[in-house]
Amino acid sequence: MNAVTALDRPVRDLVSPEEWETRVNLAACYRLTALYGMTDLTATHISARVPGVEGQFLINPHGMFFDEITASSLVKVDYDGNILLPSPYPVNKAGYVIHSAIHAARPDVDCVLHTHTRAGMAVSAMECGLLPISQHSMRFYNRLGYHDYEGLAQDEDEKKRLVRDLGTHRALILRNHGLLSAGRTVAEAFSLIHYLEKCCQSQIDALSGGQKLTIPPGQVCEHTARQYEAFGILGTRDWPGHLRRLDKLDPSYKE
């Protein structure tokens, strides 16, 4: 988990074209998370499975802000916490625990994104959890896990409970902690957290109004969730636009 000596060759020369593409998309996801105001200094993390290799994933160097992350700076680590390419930065222990657990248990998940946003933390502390009070929140109806708070996620034993509570879902609320998405692609993980964050913000706004809330019948919420699922992998249509936006602002994420 600790930093190791620096490389003497460019990372792009040391990895497969498929891994490099994943690195570029993951670095873009970090930049977008910063752009949309969902960061917590260096405290949270996003990971992506290394394509074509068992038991390896990419994660942020612990000490860089999200708007500084580049494709080359991402740290490659295995499920035992070993850093596989030299990096001047260590890996966040909680990030390793959370992400290694999900990648190992869910081969359908290629990207895991965890946030500590103001709205996400607020809803994570609500006994009611996420309420189906908006079209966006109905996307997550019966498709959202909850994991009780156990302290900083540094205990290896917590992995099995994280995996259990996520189940087959693509989103998880970590009670008294924050939000998590588990995407089939980097684009899907980002889109899921983007919409889950909006749901939390709108729930806080609605509750602050002091009026009785209207909640549609369960069958309507389920119908809406299935309609969303029929669209396929979330974020596919949006991702090229996100990359165009980043290219206009600062294309250094691709370095």
Rank of each mutant, 00 (worst) to 15 (best):
P88I: 02
S87P: 05
A225E: 13
S202N: 13
T33S: 14
S16G: 05
E150A: 10
E229H: 11
M1W: 11
P90N: 09
Y228E: 07
A171L: 07
M121S: 14
E18L: 10
R106G: 02
L130N: 04
F140T: 03
P51E: 03
T42V: 15
V163P: 10
P107I: 06
P216T: 09
Q135T: 09
K160V: 15
V220N: 09
S72W: 00
Q201M: 11
R164I: 01
S87A: 06
H62E: 03
S191E: 12
P86N: 14
M64P: 00
V50N: 04
L130Q: 10
Q219F: 15
A122D: 00
C29M: 13
L179N: 02
V4T: 14
V97T: 09
A101Y: 08
N2V: 12
L26Y: 03
G241S: 15
R184N: 09
T224Y: 06
V53I: 12
L35K: 13
Y228W: 15
H114W: 04
R118C: 03
F57K: 06
L172S: 03
L26M: 02
N60W: 01
E150F: 12
L113R: 00
S16P: 03
Y228S: 06
G52V: 09
K198M: 06
D148Q: 08
G63I: 04
E255P: 00
P90G: 13
I133M: 07
S181L: 01
I193W: 00
V123Y: 03
Y96H: 15
G52C: 05
M126W: 08
I69Q: 04
V112I: 15
E18I: 01
D165G: 02
L196W: 00
